[in-house]
């Protein structure tokens, strides 16, 4: 091998690399820009900001772990926002999935008008994220709203103003969330359709009752879909914002009873311009979501069954 061949080989290697990668990376260019400029860059930046005091006008001042210490030890509103959000997540997610599964099972029996019902039940999910529906909800659960009007005319009950009562305000928002079970239901329906009917027939021949069939066939066969729905709803509900903002008019009231985590983060970051503190809150939120998602993933091998027969 002579000396001249070596740079040539290098050159060929780079030409090969270029030929292989130029076009694919061109296609990925917009995504790369987004990834670095709008996702990874800002993530590192917000991690840095979380250790500073920053108000957008004057330069950031290093504050060490002060933001985190204040959050965990002193800030009662922070603790309240965490409590509100955890209550919201752990009440609304199971209820929503239970409703979605119950209705999906009811629909999955070869009813002729299935697609009409599916549409009917999807409409709340379609519209539910909007400000309009939050406005409507506020009215519905208000002092002289639809719900109380109904309770009064049907039962003569004089019910309280749900949205301005700290005991019930959060639950009116939970109701709004559970009401939107439509897309989880559609996912469950798609999963139920995949279960071979022979399994049920065989079980019935063996004398398995309804509860037995649900526990031994429906739930295991549906567990991958359940897993999927659970992860999606869990991650999404930690980030709920619009409905709480509109129903409490941006305050998180009455007396912070609907102060969702993201709402408090918004107040800190964009009303009081404590952007260092808000960044620290964002990172703790990421850790909390990561923690619960990891629990779901970690326990999944005990309760999620995949179709290949074994647990994987």
């Amino acid at each position: 091998m002579n000396q001249a061949a070596k740079p040539n080989r290098m050159r060929n290697y780079f030409i090969g690399l270029w030929k292989k990668n130029a076009v694919p990376y061109l296609f990925l260019l917009p995504w790369f820009l987004g990834l670095f400029v709008l996702t990874l860059g800002p993530m590192i930046s917000s991690l840095y900001l979380s250790f500073t005091d920053y108000d957008l006008l004057s330069p950031a001042r290093w504050a060490g772990t002060a933001n985190y210490e204040k959050m965990l030890n002193e800030d009662a509103r922070y603790a309240q926002s965490l409590k509100v959000t955890l209550t919201y997540v752990f009440v609304s997610v199971p209820l929503k999935l239970a409703f979605a599964l119950a209705v999906a099972m009811l629909l999955n029996k070869g009813l002729r008008a299935l697609h009409i019902y599916r549409t009917l039940y999807y409409i709340p999910t379609l519209l539910g994220g909007s400000v309009a529906i939050a406005v409507m909800w506020r009215q519905m659960f208000g002092a002289d709203g639809l719900l109380n009007g109904f309770l009064y005319s049907a039962f003569g009950i004089e019910a309280p103003d749900w949205v301005s009562n700290p005991k019930y305000a959060l639950y009116s928002i939970i109701a709004l969330t559970v009401w939107q079970f439509g897309s989880s239901m559609i996912i469950f329906l798609a999963g139920l359709k995949q279960i071979p009917p022979e399994l049920y027939e065989a079980a019935e021949v063996d004398g398995a009752g309804k509860a037995r069939r649900f526990l031994s066939i429906t739930f295991p066969m549906l567990s991958p879909v359940m897993f999927f729905n659970l992860v999606i709803q869990l991650i999404g509900s930690f980030q709920a914002f619009t409905q709480a903002f509109i129903i409490s008019r941006g305050t998180g009231g009455p007396i912070d009873s609907t102060l969702f985590y993201t709402l408090y983060l918004y107040q800190k970051g964009f009303s009081q311009f404590e952007m260092g503190y808000a960044s620290a809150m964002a990172w703790v939120l990421l850790i909390i979501i990561g923690f619960f998602t990891a629990i779901v993933f970690g326990t999944s091998r005990y309760w999620v069954h995949y179709g290949d027969g074994g647990r994987s």
């Binding site: 990925l28 900001l49 957008l56 991650i235 970051g269 952007m275 960044s279």
Partner: peptide, 25 residues
């Protein structure tokens, strides 16, 4: 890159929103 992309799907946008706001500001 694919793995990184999948991770960003689950990322809450709050960890990027403040620096993004500063950038656009």
């Amino acid at each position: 890159w694919f793995a990184l992309m999948m991770v960003t799907i689950m990322l809450p946008h709050h960890v990027t929103i403040i620096p993004q706001y500063i950038l656009f500001h």
